[in-house]
Design a protein around this nucleic acid. Structure first.
Lengths: 143, 143
DNA sequence: TTTAGGGTTGCATGAACTCCACATGGTGTC
DNA sequence: GACACCATGTGGAGTTCATGCAACCCTAAA
């Protein structure tokens, strides 16, 4: 499903050295998207697993602590709600569900992402123009 | 020259609340691009001025201290070189010039930006699919 | 007993940004 | 003459935010 261009090995990382740690802070739309796609409440653990496959993380499983913290923030903002599931057997776990506000937020995120995208594209065009090279067809990390 | 979609007023910021402070850390390719376009050494002050008009800053003049710090970092990395210009009249000021390494870095940045762009687009498609809405033509902050 | 599933907190680190202050020098104004 | 303001460069303190690591709790299966 997700098939992004993510540098997998060291030489790719070298080539895309500038990538660095940018484009963080986007775990929130990723989580919103996962919850919206599932359409049922999800456990935090599953969210962490599935987030790893999202374009934002590209196979690298994000730190669980970070995701749980983000989930907490999102609940405080009203984008999701959580409740404890206490089965007769097994340990208790939280179930996170999208709220209407969260769905609305995701809708705005879609526009915001388009905005980001356009900004990046403009910068890329400016840079190409400045170097006098013609833009190839998204040679994304093409090593 | 630069004409990005940047929320100008408060209501736009509300609508694009998720924008927050993401997409920072991109002052480096912006500076590289400015220097590459000028093709002559530039003063830091001018860089600050022109950076304000770039897609990344969208009219908001970035903090000069931050830009100067970035310039220093970039010089340490060998992407630019600077020398003092000491005119007979007026105060001394630095002239920043792009190095070959800097030009090479900008070339990699172009690929990296394409990579970012693709990631954002994928996430956006996933989000739209999850919400069951069809993607309009980049309605970037369309309020 | 170890491993895996599931959740949480604390602490340290680091990057990036903001605000503030301080230089120097020119121009303009009250 | 004092004051303000733009041009120009720099340093420090403090904030915010994300990252990563370690530790802690639980249960269940192998």
């Amino acid at each position: 499903m997700w098939s992004s261009c993510n540098p997998k090995n060291d030489s790719d990382l070298q080539a895309c050295a500038e990538l660095g740690k940018s484009l963080n802070r986007l775990s929130q739309p990723t989580i919103l998207t996962l919850l919206a796609k599932a359409d049922v409440p999800m456990h935090g653990y599953i969210i962490v697993q599935q987030a790893a496959d999202s374009p934002m993380f590209g196979g690298t499983k994000p730190d669980a602590a970070g995701i749980y913290r983000t989930l907490k923030r999102m609940e405080e903002s009203g984008f999701i709600v959580s409740e404890w599931e206490t089965p007769d057997e097994g340990s208790a776990r939280r179930l996170y569900a999208l709220t209407d506000k969260g769905r609305e937020s995701l809708r705005r995120w879609i526009d915001a992402l388009a905005c980001y995208r356009l900004t990046l594209e403009e910068l890329r065009e400016e840079a190409s123009g400045a170097l006098g090279i013609d833009l190839p067809e998204t040679p994304c990390c093409s090593i």
